[in-house]
């Protein structure tokens, strides 16, 4: 038997978010109640083996944010970004005005075309 809920998308989304939040809360509570309160401790347990280097050197390396997606960008949209960054948004006032004037011209052209073809 299939029961059908007639919900509009807002209510459905709010309902689903609420259900997800509630179920994750329940799972978290289950996890907290089932997890062991006391743990056995040994030196190997507290210091996991990561590499040959000590932990303070390993911890100091993290990826700069600019490199996080630069790999994707370099792989896919290099040409696009060279155009957008270095040719369009190059900070020179006169080079911007090329685009702005083209836009005025486009608008004027459209208004002339409408006027003569109506």
């Amino acid at each position: 038997m299939v029961t059908q809920l007639n919900l509009d998308p807002w209510t459905a989304t709010l309902f689903l978010s609420g259900v997800l939040a509630f179920s994750s809360l329940v799972m978290y509570l289950i996890y907290v109640s089932l997890s062991r309160k006391t743990t056995h401790s040994s030196s190997e347990y507290s210091e996991p083996y990561i590499g040959g280097e000590p932990a303070n050197i390993i911890r100091s390396i993290d990826v700069p944010a600019r490199n996080l997606f630069w790999g994707i960008v370099r792989g896919t949209g290099r040409k696009l970004y060279v155009f957008l960054r270095d040719q369009m948004h190059n900070g020179v006032l006169n080079d911007w005005s090329v685009y702005m004037v083209t836009y005025v011209g486009l608008l004027a052209l459209i208004s002339i075309i409408i006027y003569f073809t109506r």
């Binding site: 960054r85 948004h89 190059n90 900070g91 006032l93």
Partner: peptide, 10 residues
């Protein structure tokens, strides 16, 4: 000269 007043870019 606006071509040299272009410190902000990108």
């Amino acid at each position: 000269d606006v071509r040299r007043v272009a410190r902000l870019r990108g």
